[in-house]
Design a protein around this nucleic acid. Structure first.
Lengths: 263, 263
DNA sequence: GGCTAGTGTAACTCGGTTAATCACAAAAAC
DNA sequence: GTTTTTGTGATTAACCGAGTTACACTAGCC
């Protein structure tokens, strides 16, 4: 109950509100309409500061004020509120894109050949995976180590791949393989021989997340830290890249059963 | 040039980044790849703090790290970045919606009959206008006082109104009326007799924004503060509402040429 | 090896913002 | 006319982020 309220307050703060503003807004959402006194009682916000908070919310179109005495406040309907917030952020992201688009690349500096990059965060890694798969022209080898990574988005991307691209998808478990087989009928599926990447052998705290190999020249490997559930990835590009070389070697040993390039 | 950069930095901060994070990200966007030293030079961020900022960005999937010595950083492609940010906010708004949906209304307390609410902010007022227009069952009277308010969204809403609803749209100028006439063919348009609401007569600092009257029982009037360009609105509901009564009186005096209810 | 410049971490200071409290005038309620 | 409630403004305290410094460590270079 109350924890739901706290949850909402927290999210609102992530969206940029101050604590008092968030508390007041949530308070109003369950009050239909109220005075500063009442709000103060239900939200733990000092009465004298309710007014400031409300004014800010009003300026954003999230709260309405009735200028009587005492003043009454009420929250805009939830649909309107979410719509307003959404717009606000759409606009900002759009503005960002526009300005950054015009200045991109002011560049120089030679880059080393052996590039291995790392990134974390499920969101970003999924984006990158998506992009990689879209770039494939010949072959996609994909191993999925955690059920949670088989998202609708991933499935959609796989199914929209160029039919000329060889699709090989592995899973760590049979049940996952079955799921994949039915979700992506064009794919050749298998149960990975990569169990050694999982659990005690290497690092008891780390589980394989995904392994993406595109056209044998770009690779992304991610792991998932079990308790924090944080996904971390490393990413390499280029035929001569060390990481990529290792991946090819794995294939040649049959751990990743990829097709012959000539086929 | 540099002001574009500042713009981008500002927007990123509005999206929740700290100053250093924003500066570093923008710096990387025009650098293809760089070390802490170089970043520090181009972004004015103290070198020793670049690392912290980058780590945060990396955790969000906006930056990649090459763990060499010295480390190299690079920004994710712009498309990926905006996609990530967008998702982040979609998720938050969605979570907010979900939690608030479950707790809405914990209510009591009688509300006075004469309700007049006020709100500000173009965004929120536009949402409210939209909703009001959607609720119409008989008649919509709309007066638009500023060209900037004739948005695509408003036009779309007007055109999607139930054909049984009488649509009367006024404008403060003839040129605006012409625009409306062509954008919303079903509407009866006119040039408003409300010039007295504009300029010196009432308040030299205030210009009429929009006037929305739905089914003769709900009204919204907004004004635009000329220099700050802030829109403020008052909003009343109920047939007996004082504000609504005034609006009806205006109509009866021919200032708002509405049709006879029986027609 | 030993030296120097450069790299990465961690601690600390300072300043501004925000949460929280208080004082007070104006307005309602009784 | 007295007392409570209401709204504004100022003040204090706690916190967080910007900016700085100290230092251990690495990598190249005599």
């Amino acid at each position: 109950m109350t924890e739901d309220l706290e949850e909402a307050i927290e999210v609102l703060q992530q969206l940029g509100m101050k604590e008092y503003e968030a508390r007041c807004f949530v308070g109003l959402c369950r009050l239909e309409s109220g005075t500063a006194k009442r709000l103060s009682e239900t939200t733990e916000v000092p009465r004298t500061r309710v007014y400031d908070a409300i004014r800010v919310l009003e300026a954003q179109g999230l709260v309405e004020i009735q200028h009587t005495s005492p003043q009454r406040f009420r929250a805009v309907p939830l649909d309107e509120a979410t719509e307003t917030l959404r717009h606000q952020y759409e606009d900002r992201v759009e503005r960002l894109r526009d300005t950054l688009e015009t200045i991109d690349v002011t560049e120089e500096e030679g880059t080393p050949v052996q590039e291995v990059w790392s990134m974390s965060g499920q969101e970003g890694i999924e984006n990158r995976t998506d992009q990689l798969l879209g770039e494939a022209t010949e072959e996609i080898v994909l191993v999925i180590g955690d059920e949670s990574l088989l998202t609708d988005r991933l499935i959609a991307t796989l199914n929209s791949a160029d039919p000329g691209v060889e699709l090989v998808v592995g899973a760590l478990t049979e049940s996952l393989e079955t799921q994949i087989q039915s979700a992506v009928p064009d794919a050749t599926t298998f149960v990975s021989g990569l169990e050694w990447l999982h659990g005690e052998d290497i690092d008891e705290e780390t589980a394989i997340g995904r392994l993406v190999l595109v056209d044998r020249s770009k690779i992304l490997v991610s792991t998932i830290v079990p308790d924090s559930h944080v996904e971390q990835a490393i990413f390499g590009e280029g035929f001569g890249n060390g990481l990529v070389v290792i991946a090819r070697r794995l294939m040649s040993q049959g751990l990743i059963p990829a097709r012959d390039p000539g086929s």
